[in-house]
Each structure stands twice: as structure tokens, then as C-alpha cells.
């Protein structure tokens, strides 16, 4: 399932969710200042992280192909509307899209290696010192979002299969996208409703205990340190 946790025994799977979230935030923020060269270099690091977590680069590209399509359209729009000309617009659009792709790849790796329950605990940890913020509610919100994301992809796959089964793929692209989007939207709302019901039926309470606990190890410190170095590199170059 896309953007979903997969049970493995790699370094990143065993790493503390706090370290992974901190690394993701640090590198993502740094990427907003990164040059083209630095973006490519960070992309290489993201690819290495994915491979080390038993996630294939091709798999990520395949799963986010719709986002890639949107980025290509965005780059084209930028190229055509840039006052400095098509070449400058294309270059700027490509760099911006590249940054997005790297951030999405990193988020993919984090979601493939982190259980949503651990995401909840990590968010609670980071938000606990913030005054007037209910960290339990926010933690649950993040975890539910992380849980719901793969379900939407799953629904999308089902809608496409149902359409294909009745030769829906023979229709024009506009009709295909329009009817798939509408069905997907409806099913996603229904799925969200069912997920909420399933949680409620088992007495959901944001102020709950947890089977799991987060455990910070030396490797987590190393992960954060490496991420900070990568982030500094991205900003500096």
C-alpha cells in the first residue's frame, strides 16, 4: 500500500520516530533554500535512505506519478510565464519541482518506516512543551492523517480497477479523470467516516496510553546529526 508502513528490520525502521521527523523537517526546510546542485545532492541522499529502508526509487516515482504530472504542468506554466524568458522559467520551475520531489521522497521513506502510533508519540513529544496546545489531540490528528493517506491511495486503486473492469479505461482522459475524481472524493469521505466509526466503537480517547514507547539510541543521534549536516550543506550551496 502506498505511503504506508511496511514491517522490516532496517536501520530506519528501528530508528526513533522523533529522530526521523526531526530529520525530515530539517532537510525539508533547508531544501527551500537549496540550489539546483544541492537539490540533486540531497536527492541522492534521499535515494540512499530509501534503498537502505528497502524502498525502491522506482516504486516512489510510480506511486507519486500524479504529483509528478502536476509538477511538470507547473514547470511548463512557469516556463511560459516567466518574464526572464522560457529558459530561465524552465530552470526555476525545474528546481522548485525537484525540491518537491525530494521532500515527497523523504516523506515516503519516513511513512514506510514509521508506524502511525510512533508518529503520534513523536508529535506529542515535540508539542508537549508548547503552551495552550493539546499535544494529545495534535498527535492523534497527525497519526490519523498518516493512517488515512494510504487508505485514499487504496481507494483510488479500487476505483480505477472497477472502471477498468468495465472498459472505463477506453474513455477519454477528461471523462476518466472527472468521474474517477468524483467517485474517489465520495469514497474517501465515506472511508474517513468509517475509520472514525471504527475508532469510536472501540472507545477512542485522545488521552490514551500506548503499547509502544519511543526509545532514543545512539544511532538516532547520528541520524539527526547527519540530517543537520545535509541541511547545512543544502543551505550553504
Amino acid at each position: 500500500m502506498k505511503f504506508a508502513y511496511r514491517d522490516r528490520d532496517t536501520f530506519l525502521h528501528c530508528a526513533d520516530a522523533r529522530a526521523k521527523l526531526a530529520a525530515l523537517v530539517a532537510v525539508s526546510l533547508a531544501l527551500t533554500w537549496a540550489s539546483a546542485l544541492a537539490t540533486v545532492a540531497v536527492g541522492g541522499a534521499a535515494y540512499a535512505a530509501a534503498r537502505s529502508a528497502d524502498v525502491r526509487g522506482r516504486e516512489i516515482l510510480h506511486d507519486v506519478r500524479l504529483v509528478l504530472l502536476i509538477l511538470v504542468v507547473g514547470t511548463a506554466a512557469r516556463a511560459l510565464s516567466d518574464p526572464d524568458g522560457v529558459a530561465a522559467g524552465t530552470a526555476a520551475g525545474a528546481v522548485a519541482s525537484g525540491r518537491f520531489v525530494v521532500i515527497i521522497a523523504l516523506a515516503y521513506v519516513v511513512s514506510a518506516t514509521t508506524r502511525t502510533g510512533d508518529v503520534r508519540l513523536a508529535v506529542e513529544f515535540f508539542l508537549a512543551p508548547v503552551p495552550r496546545v493539546n499535544e494529545k489531540d495534535w498527535g492523534t490528528m497527525f497519526a490519523a492523517a498518516a493512517r488515512f493517506f494510504p487508505l485514499v491511495f487504496e481507494e483510488s486503486k479500487r476505483v480505477q480497477e472497477a472502471r477498468k473492469a468495465r472498459l472505463g479505461d477506453k474513455q477519454g482522459w477528461y471523462t476518466r479523470i472527472r468521474s474517477t475524481a468524483f467517485t474517489l472524493l465520495t469514497r474517501s469521505f465515506r472511508r474517513a467516516d468509517t475509520l472514525a466509526l471504527a475508532m469510536e466503537s472501540r472507545g477512542y480517547d485522545s488521552d490514551r496510553s500506548s503499547l509502544r514507547s519511543l526509545e532514543w539510541r545512539r544511532g538516532d543521534t547520528a541520524l539527526v546529526a547527519v540530517s543537520v549536516v545535509i541541511a547545512a550543506f543544502a543551505v550553504a550551496f
Binding site: 504506508a4 514491517d7 502511525t116 502510533g117 471504527a198
Partner: peptide, 9 residues
């Protein structure tokens, strides 16, 4: 539709 987590445990 009753499943709320990624692993059975």
C-alpha cells in the same frame, strides 16, 4: 473497515 492500524498487533 474496522482496521485502524498498520499491524495486527
Amino acid at each position: 473497515s474496522q482496521v485502524v492500524a498498520e499491524t495486527v498487533e
